[in-house]
């Protein structure tokens, strides 16, 4: 339990500091940190209920995509300000390193198994983003039907 809480605090710090490296505007940093922390919490809970690596990463990425888009609309900032820093705790850095190390030391079969893990995680994250994009477009369609303010603001958007 304590480990989970410290992990979450460290994730928040990591997300914000990675945002600083990418030069995210100051007014977006805090929200990026919260999105990163929340989606990492969802990922951890999925891992604890043994949903498996791929599904947990997919759910985490899905949450990042949806929350980032809501924040971007609310703050009127580009969505990449939020989803790229928030993605940092999901990077399969450990597996990628083990892959490189085992290739370098000549243990190719172990390296290949790590390569497969990296591919699975990356694919799960990409599909999570895809599903989030689907959700965002559905939401936009629905809002266009329901709200006249939305229709006015998005009247020139060719993607809707």
């Amino acid at each position: 339990m304590i480990e989970l809480v410290t992990d979450l605090i460290l994730t928040y710090i990591a997300t914000i500091t990675f945002g600083i490296l990418l030069n995210v505007p100051r007014r977006g940093l805090n929200m990026a940190g919260w999105i990163g922390t929340l989606s990492y919490l969802a990922y951890k809970l999925c891992m604890l209920t043994s949903l498996g690596m791929a599904l947990s990463n997919l759910i985490g990425a899905l949450l990042i995509g949806i929350l980032s888009m809501q924040t971007a609309r609310f703050k009127k900032m580009p969505v990449i300000n939020f989803n790229i820093p928030a993605l940092v705790p999901f990077v399969p850095g450990g597996q990628a390193y083990q892959m490189v190390k085992n290739f370098a030391l000549g243990d190719n079969s172990l390296a290949l198994s790590y390569l497969l893990q990296v591919v699975i995680i990356a694919g799960a994250i990409a599909f999570g983003f895809l599903l989030a994009e689907l959700f965002n477009r559905l939401q936009a369609r629905l809002m266009l039907k329901l709200s006249s303010r939305w229709r006015h603001e998005n009247r020139h958007n060719p993607r809707l």
Partner: peptide
């Protein structure tokens, strides 16, 4: 408009340390 170089350095250090603990 950039963050100052020192802030970037400290951030890089913190990203490394915190993610090392989170991952490992």
């Amino acid at each position: 408009p950039y963050f100052s170089f020192w802030l970037q350095l400290i951030s890089a250090g913190l990203v490394s340390g915190t993610l090392e603990v989170v991952f490992r």
